[in-house]
Amino acid sequence: MNREQERALLLFVVAIVLIATPVRALWLQTWWSPFAFWLSMIAVVALVHRRDNAA
C-alpha cells in the first residue's frame, strides 16, 4: 500500500465514522448543515488530492 492509498484509507475511516456512526447527529442540526458537512468533506478530499499530486 503506497502513501496515497494510506491517506485514502485514513480519510475513508474518518468519513465512515462521521457518516455511519451516531456522530452524524453533529451535522444534522439545521436543514443546510448536511450540505455544509458534505461540501467540507469534498474540500478535504480535494486538498488531499492536490497534496498527492504535488507529491
Binding site: E4, A8, L9, L11, A15, I19, P34, W38, M41, I42
Partner: peptide, 20 residues
Amino acid sequence: GYDFLAVYFGVTLSCIAIPI
C-alpha cells in the same frame, strides 16, 4: 427526509476510496 442524501454520501465515500 435526508435519507435521500445517503444515495450520494455512499458515492462520496466510494470516491474517497478510489485509490484503494
